[in-house]
Design a protein around this nucleic acid. Structure first.
Lengths: 231, 231
DNA sequence: ATAGAATACGAAGGATCCTTCGCATTCGCG
DNA sequence: CGCGAATGCGAAGGATCCTTCGTATTCTAT
């Protein structure tokens, strides 16, 4: 079997001189432009190089493959989005439920922001989705969300809580992707985000309830039900 | 601009003789095999023809393009899934909430069933996703679910109810897709389906509550809250 | 049996793509 | 100033693909 590619999906070499640093930056910017304007189908190494005013050869000097370039874009996007969302989830000034609601809204908006880029990345996803590097990335996010859920569902058994966290994370990511793929306008996105947030909150509360009930008479006087309950 | 393709995505001609009917059937079966075994990338008209023991030319006699063939597969899959799910949603022997729960479970399982096919179809989705035929198809499902929601949320204003229906449908489809893409085993899928169903139910109940509250004192003695409430 | 329609065939035209590699340029520094 | 290293270049090799079209074969109905 000679199916496995040898070239990893990570960067090939690191730029050391200034001009190459700039070159890599130019390529990345051009790549974003090409991807969002031309779509995944027409995303070509040569086209990216042209758009960047650079030779294809130079591109391959720093990215071992088209796959790698795409993965880099995906990674950058993901990191930018989660740096913001992560902060919200950790913002102690808000109640856990409020944080969740805000995070969902911001996430949806963020996905919409670069809709065409996201869509194209998604179409191209098959090219790098299976790489171990990609999987590792998602894992980090998952842990972050699980940690946040400790605050959200303190009295729920670990296994159940982790499942709930995964469910909400997956549902949010999948739904936002599908919704923004249709290029909705801002109010529409906000409406969806709000409904979804309401859904996650309702779910989380129901999990808290059933879990507390299952702890039978062990009424350890858990610290007043978190989150605003509907007035 | 010569970008628009002239060939529609629908079938080219209908088989009239027996041998051609068989041929089309063979092609479709072969296409499914190729897609699930080789993946979207290696899904080729020539390969499908070979797998079917047929000439490429014959394939193009009945499918105007590769796109069309893929669309047909997608359509068939979708129809099969929804014929089952639709029945459940209409089964008057069960309470609306029970129907929703059962439908979610069946939908998830159905998606898992042909996971590799679904995944490949999804990867190839960019090729036909935008076709009007595809959009029309989704629309029908949406209407079905909205109709079902009339039973689920009788007292909720139309606009709000439709939104809720769309949210649940989209969330379910998107989540199931993402989850089954990772090839989970049966128990795992069931667990996810159950959690998701719980989530949708919690959401629906919260919508029912807020809507009823907003109808202020208009306590029109709505027919006892549907669905089992947790004991 | 036979013409005309329906089918089937599959080599080849025409398009892209991805990636490499030998060479040319530019940098950093002694 | 001059040289080795770092960069940059882009034509061309090597792979696939999609789709068409001129022919050949098989049916159907008369």
């Amino acid at each position: 079997m000679k199916r496995r590619k040898k070239t990893s999906i990570s960067a090939r070499k690191t730029p050391v001189q200034d001009r190459s640093t700039r070159l890599v930056a130019d390529i990345l910017e051009a790549a974003v432009r090409v991807l969002s304007k031309e779509g995944a189908r027409r995303f070509t190494t040569v086209r990216v190089a042209e758009e960047a005013g650079v030779s294809v050869g130079s591109l391959y000097q720093y990215f071992p493959s088209k796959e790698a370039l795409l993965f880099r874009l995906q990674t950058d996007e993901w990191e930018e989005t989660w740096s913001v969302v992560g902060e919200i989830l950790a913002d102690a000034r808000l109640s856990p439920v409020e944080r969740l609601e805000k995070a969902v809204l911001v996430f949806f908006r963020s996905e919409q922001q670069e809709a065409s880029l996201r869509a194209a990345l998604d179409d191209a996803g098959a090219l790098f989705r299976d790489a171990p590097e990609a999987h590792a990335f998602v894992e980090v996010t998952r842990r972050e969300v699980r940690t946040f859920f400790v605050e959200l569902l303190p009295d729920v058994p670990d296994a159940r809580r982790s499942l709930a966290a995964d469910v909400v994370l997956t549902a949010m990511a999948a739904t936002a992707e599908k919704v923004t793929a249709q290029r909705p306008d801002r109010p529409t996105v906000d409406a969806w985000a709000k409904e979804c947030a309401a859904m996650y909150v309702a779910y989380v509360e129901s999990v808290a309830l059933t879990a507390r009930r299952e702890t039978v008479t062990g009424t350890r006087r858990s610290p007043a039900p978190r989150g605003r309950r509907p007035r």
